[in-house]
């Protein structure tokens, strides 16, 4: 049974993750991840990653490469980083075991493509998180992002979604 304090703690984690992503705080965001990480943006909700290509399917090693690239100073599609703000809502949390939670939230993200067009891009969908308590602290094991328009032509997705 999920306690009130656990609920607050998981929500606080989701809001922090969202803020670190919004602010392109690459080190802070990377530090949230557990070793068995999966950062996944499929093209449809029930996609099979073994047989279907995804927009993003990063394990921990590839997350590290992604962050190194963003921090290189010459990741031109994110140089400078897009100003962003996202709103999380419709949060649902389930306790999976003593130390694991699954959470899901709808999000709306305003992203300003200052690197080229200066278009304000609107991204929306549902994010599904798996969190685990390790040494007293919550860690992000997986984040699966179901974009509403995942199977449509989309703009650059090189920021942290």
């Amino acid at each position: 049974m999920l306690s009130e304090s656990e609920c607050r703690e998981v929500e606080a984690f989701l809001f922090k993750e969202a803020r670190l992503a919004d602010e392109s705080d690459y080190d802070g965001w990377e530090a949230l991840w557990a070793d068995d990480a999966l950062y996944w943006v499929p093209t449809r909700p029930d996609a099979d990653p073994e047989t279907e290509v995804s927009h993003i399917y990063d394990n921990r090693t590839r997350i590290a490469t992604r962050i190194r690239q963003l921090k290189s100073g010459v990741r031109y599609s994110q140089t400078p980083a897009s100003p962003m703000r996202r709103v999380l809502s419709n949060i649902e949390i389930e306790k999976m075991s003593d130390d694991e939670y699954e959470a899901a939230a709808n999000f709306m993200l305003m992203e300003l493509a200052v690197q080229s067009t200066r278009n304000m891009n609107l991204w929306g969908g549902r994010a599904i998180y798996r969190l685990r308590r390790e040494g007293g602290k919550l860690r992000l094991c997986s984040k699966k992002i179901l974009l509403v328009d995942a199977d449509e032509p989309i703009a650059n997705l090189s920021f942290l979604i």
Partner: peptide
């Protein structure tokens, strides 16, 4: 769009 190469080409 989420890869390590094409976002730069698009940009």
């Amino acid at each position: 769009p989420g890869s390590f190469l094409l976002p730069e080409d698009a940009c």
